[in-house]
Design a protein around this nucleic acid. Structure first.
Lengths: 253, 253
DNA sequence: GAGTGGTCTAGACCACAGG
DNA sequence: CTGTGGTCTAGACCACTCG
């Protein structure tokens, strides 16, 4: 194993034990001397931790430790598995943003509404054990759900729609993809920009009228989430079903 | 502006004009001499283009151009959508590797077999329009499907199992996650290492006996694939259903 | 073995932040 | 001004791929 890799590991341990988020590392010259390696090699080691999302270099200032929220060894840790059918039902959600939009061509097509129609955007951040894991943009049919932004303030959005408007929602379709986080997403989810997010776009229609009342885009940290698909299983009307698998077949090979 | 940045720009132009996807760049030594800079500086320039997803370094071999293969502006292009139920059925697949394994604890748990049981690994690379898009590791129950490695040589694996062994397979479960590509995966898929792959692990069981005959891990380029989930739709026995959506609701916001 | 990328060292100078 | 990170050069040797 290369020197810079060994130093990176050692440095990582050191940081986890003796530093806190926001602290500054000793200077490159000092660290190089401490490890008895060239400064370039030390820099290469630090590069690793920067790529891993652990450090932040600031020219002239120093190198800072940033949030250590990432779970590197995914296979060895508990990982939440969410049934795709349930992604609209959110038990613990904090509202990040409310905004009234008018549908552009793309959004209109996604929601089966006319371009220019009013759409209420609500963004929620869902956390588990105090750690943010999923960011969801809910695009809501503003005329069918008037004042929804005022009525909803966290918790289950679908339950809110059920009680306030007497409408039951059911997922029509889900499209699952993988993307890299934007700067905003990485900040909100406390997640490095070089690890992917799982993205699920879905339409939720009213079971009685068939209208698309909600189009949602969920982005989840890949270290915390995976989606379970069980064919032949009807979409359940149950509430949020975040489950901790007892033991997960996480074979890599 | 730094030398390495200028060189990176110049190199990018040069590549766009005079190279095609799959070509190899001249060696670092040659390029360094051509630009009259040190090899380290040249490497730094190449690093930029690698981060940008344009090049792929291969130790001992060379540096390959892959840019043209990556579709950055996903929303504006056609994107293949695959029904998750169909991911075991592969119409066009090239066999990359065949290997006989004995199941370790993890694999055994995933396949519901005893540790130490023989498992035939077959890896296939699936291409669309001559471009690799998905890499699949098929772990096959070696005693239930003797000599499968000899019988199968591309095309639909499930069809092969149907005709040669008289067994019909059905997907039991799929777990969808997002991962970054390994070096090998990025080479096989001609895909930069800083863009994610969609990963689907699934069990395929024999419809009659219920045995897990296949455990598969599919890794797909995120620029070419997304998975469609339609609740309430029974898993169809149909063959491969890669579809080109006429217009896709790809709203980003 | 020849050629490629990967690592390490050494020393120099530059650019930025802050007292 | 001092100290930090950022860049560039030079030369050496290692590790991998392929014929």
């Amino acid at each position: 194993m290369a020197i810079y890799q060994e130093v990176a590991r050692a440095l990582e341990q050191d940081i986890r034990q003796n530093f806190r988020s926001g602290d500054y590392l000793p200077s490159e010259a000092v660290l190089a001397q401490r490890f008895s390696i060239n400064r370039h090699t030390l820099r290469r080691a630090v590069d690793e931790l920067i790529d891993a999302g652990m450090l932040l270099r600031q020219h002239g200032r120093g190198t800072q430790i940033i949030e250590q929220a990432v779970e590197y060894d995914i296979a060895s840790r508990a990982r939440f598995t969410e049934s795709v059918e349930a992604s609209g039902h959110l038990a613990e959600a904090r509202v990040i943003e409310r905004k009234l939009l008018t549908a552009d061509a793309t959004l209109a097509r996604a929601m089966w509404i006319a371009p220019g129609s009013p759409v209420q955007l609500i963004e929620t951040l869902r956390s588990v054990d105090g750690r943010p894991v999923t960011l969801i943009s809910h695009y809501l049919h503003a005329t069918a759900l008037p004042e929804i932004a005022r009525h909803y303030d966290g918790g289950s959005l679908h339950a809110c729609i059920g009680t306030k408007y007497g409408r039951r929602l059911s997922r029509r379709q889900g499209l699952i993809s993988a993307v890299m986080p934007s700067r905003r997403e990485s900040v909100l989810l406390q997640f490095p920009r070089n690890m992917p997010l799982l993205k699920v776009r879905s339409n939720n229609v009213c079971v009685s009228s068939g209208e698309v009342l909600e189009y949602s885009v969920a982005r989840s940290r890949c270290d915390a989430f995976e989606y379970r698909v069980q064919p032949g299983l009807e979409p359940s009307p149950a509430e949020s079903t975040v489950r901790l698998p007892p033991r997960d077949p996480n074979h890599e090979h």
